[in-house]
Write a protein that binds this DNA or RNA. Structure first.
Length: 258
DNA sequence: AATACATCCAACCGCCGACCC
DNA sequence: GGGGTCGGCGGTTGGATGTAT
């Protein structure tokens, strides 16, 4: 069958995302969830392909993204998993909460692959110890719920995350590391029809009135939730006082730090 | 200071499987 | 069962940034 392109090639912006686009996407997904990536840009007021929006959210904007240096432990995990799974980056990423498949893939190609090429002995040593690791992960698979989002390393890694020092592990475990869905009482989840219905009840004319970040947020500074958690998204994870952004967007001295 | 080169990583592209009608 | 849509994945690219000359 012939696939239609995921987006109209004309009139859609490509390339690096601007802070304004990030803000719109984040505001929209945080508020309404990812009910339909293809339609989302239209309602969010973005001139982007839905795929591009999804990628941007998943790889960059979504909560709990860990950025920056990889710990030795994380690198070891990537090496082990790559040996057993191959280039299944999403599967590897599932074992490293906070890391995206894209980021792991990049890290592999830019650092680990090169390093292992230079020092294959170290690679062999890691792979040999893989037997024990696989045994552990199999046990964990059996113990874990099938749809469990958190990987086995969640706890230790998130605790050491430099991204959100104020975030407790319980808070972290309440948030998905893998799905863009923002699950809360009045938010839409990607896969839960019941939630959608619930949301419709609460939002009223959402389906007939496109969300336009400009109009919705021009009146209230987008950063308001950071200053007053819970004001804009009373039932969102933000309401507990967490930072909305996965990375620092606000600098006390300079304002926006995009 | 200017230029060339190397490296990194965000984003795009095309394909695939799941799902729906 | 076939056609169409969608989300997700892995490979690749090219712009941004860093380093060397």
């Amino acid at each position: 069958m012939v696939r239609t392109p995921c987006c109209d090639k004309t009139g859609l912006k490509k390339g690096t995302w601007t802070p304004e686009e990030d803000r719109k996407l984040m505001a929209y997904v945080t508020k309404y969830g990812c009910w339909n990536w293809r339609q989302l840009p239209k309602y969010a007021g973005l001139s982007r392909c839905g795929k591009s929006c999804r990628l941007r959210w998943v790889n960059y904007l979504r909560p709990n993204i860990k950025r920056g240096n990889y710990s030795q432990e994380e690198e070891d995990t990537i090496i082990r998993l790559h040996e057993s799974l191959g280039n299944k980056w999403s599967a590897i990423a599932a074992q490293l909460p906070g890391r995206t498949d894209n980021e792991i893939k990049n890290h592999w190609h830019t650092n680990l692959k090169k390093r292992l090429k230079e020092n294959p002995a170290a690679y062999e040593a890691k792979v040999e110890s893989d037997d024990v690791f696989e045994c552990e992960t199999n046990q964990e698979k059996e113990l874990e719920p099938k749809n469990s989002i958190q990987g086995p390393l969640t706890h230790q890694i998130l605790e050491s995350s430099p991204m959100s020092p104020q975030q407790s592990s319980s808070e972290a475990s309440s948030m998905s590391t893998d799905t863009p869905a923002i699950t809360s009482t009045n938010m839409v989840t990607c896969d839960n029809g019941a939630s959608m219905e619930k949301y419709e009840e609460l939002s009223g004319n959402f389906w007939t009135e496109p969300f336009v970040a400009d109009s919705a947020y021009n009146r209230i500074d987008f950063l308001a939730p950071l200053a007053e958690p819970g004001y804009l998204f009373p039932h969102s994870p933000v309401s507990s006082g967490e930072m909305l952004c996965p990375y620092s967007v606000y600098d006390e001295n300079d304002g926006l730090n995009w």
